[in-house]
Amino acid sequence: MKTWNRSIIWIIFLVVALGQLFPLIWLIDFSFMKSSDFFTSAVLKWPSSPEWTNYINAWIDGKFPEYLFNSVLVSATTIILTVIFSLLLGYAFTRMQWKLRGLFFSIILLGIMIPIHATLIPNFAIFKALHLTDTYLGLIIPYTAVSVPLGTFILSGFLRSLPKEIEESAVIDGCSIYQIVFRIIMPLTMPALVTIAVTTFISCWNEFIMAATFLSKDSLKTLPFSVMNFAGQYSSDYGSQFAVMVLTSIPAIVIYALFNEQITKGITAGAVKG
């Protein structure tokens, strides 16, 4: 009975795992094809000779290295800022004593509910007036602003589950508030901070609509634009389009593979405590 149940679970899992992976396998497979090979009746096909030119097109005309650099710069800055802001706000909202903290906490949490698409149009006008469009800051500021509410929410939940005794003894030892936050609270809340960093990475690495609205200068564009440029420029060259999609997905998958354990642990810690 037990082993029978187990094999059923295995079969269901294998089917769904195949369903999750198959589109990606198809994408990789056909990225090595000539465009004329796309109209085959086979679902997957071993390419007679892999079309490496697809990848050369993707690398050079997709401006892969330039966009990758921009994506790394914007994401890294956003992650650092989001983590710091969430830590400071979360601490001030849960531990520190001041009058308006309940009100300000609710206001920040509204940021989780407010759709960014609704604020996109007026934001474009504001950023233009402040000369922030077509700058790195023009992406970093809204990305951070969008990530901070959720980050603050996760960190506050986590902080509430931490005992206050450690901070109390730190105060007795003569620590200042800044030492408490950066020397004691920061290491203690590491699981929550990792969760915040990961969710921020996934959302801003892949973000498209704000970048499409706030950027027009080619030299600042992020990775998703490689795909968009290709959809226009190489609209009938399916092989190259597929190659650029595979290429731009690799960095996020590599990061995921490297931090897989921390990502799951971080989300688990954040979700349970939050």
Binding site: A92, T119, P122, I126, I141, A145, V146
Partner: peptide, 23 residues
């Protein structure tokens, strides 16, 4: 408290409140 909260609130005001008012 001011140093911890002000930058976050400012960021929030710039990207959420100001556009909503303008909208």
């Amino acid at each position: 408290i001011f140093l911890f909260v002000f930058p976050g609130i400012l960021l929030f005001a710039l990207t959420f409140l100001a556009p909503i008012v303008l909208s």
